[in-house]
Simulated assay, not measured.
Amino acid sequence: MHRLPHHAGHSRFRAIGNARAALAVVLAAGCTLALAQAQKGAPVPGAAGIYSCVDAKGRTLTADRPIAECSDREQRELSPSGMTRRRLEPTYTAREQAEREDRAREAAVQAARIADERRRERALLIRYPNAAAHERERGEALVQVDAVIQAARKRLSELADDRKKIDEELEFYKGDASKAPGVLRRRLDDNAKSVAVQNRFIGEQEDEKKRVNARFDEERVRLKQLWSGDTATTAR
């Protein structure tokens, strides 16, 4: 029998071992890939899948490939054991996809509006746990506005006193301002403008009182529902 050199025999055994190791790596990689696909619900090569759906007429259809009659609805891919491997989304036209996105946006806006309304309701209840607290804050707000009006009226009174002095000086000119010195005429003009400003300011503050009362009245309607626990009605 012909014998290989000692070093050649070792080389041959090493080559066989390397080949076996490479085969083991390939097999392990294949098993890992198959396991990952199965976990993701993706079809595993060599394993037949079953597709199932309920069509527009309410019939349950099954096939060994995606079902054309159910292209507009969700389908399920089942394993041979009947377990759901994955779900196939409907196939939409560009127009249908745009409509779905519009509906999703509208739903998101509506959900955000409702969430914001709920936050405002919670804030109202924290701030006004009862009717007495709400009325107390209304009164405080109105007192602040009245204080501003009172200060403006006090200024009007001061302007009225100043006007009396101006009129007394105008008597020397028989009430004819055109004959009065420029300084006196400017005082008269400034007084008239200041009176107009204060009257306009008082009118604005009276309007502010109306706005304050309107706001508290509107809050009171909603708070009555919240205090009673009736939160079914949402703002439109």
Rank of each mutant, 00 (worst) to 15 (best):
G17N: 08
G17A: 12
G17P: 07
N18Q: 14
N18H: 14
R20A: 06
A22K: 09
A24H: 13
V25L: 14
V25M: 15
V26D: 14
A28M: 15
A28H: 08
G30Y: 10
C31K: 13
C31P: 14
L33K: 13
Q37I: 03
Q37F: 05
A38Y: 04
A38H: 09
Q39S: 15
K40H: 08
G41Y: 00
V44E: 04
G46H: 14
A48P: 10
C53V: 11
C53M: 12
V54K: 04
V54C: 06
D55C: 07
K57E: 14
G58M: 06
R59C: 10
T60F: 10
L61W: 09
D64K: 02
D64P: 01
R65E: 14
P66K: 01
P66N: 04
I67H: 03
A68S: 08
C70P: 02
S71E: 10
R73C: 12
R73F: 12
E77T: 09
S79I: 02
P80N: 15
G82Q: 05
T84V: 15
R85M: 06
R85P: 00
R85V: 00
R87T: 12
R87A: 09
L88P: 00
P90C: 03
Y92T: 05
A94L: 11
R95I: 04
Q97H: 02
Q97K: 03
A98V: 01
A98S: 02
R100L: 15
E101Y: 06
E101D: 15
A104Y: 01
R105D: 07
R105S: 06
E106Y: 04
E106C: 01
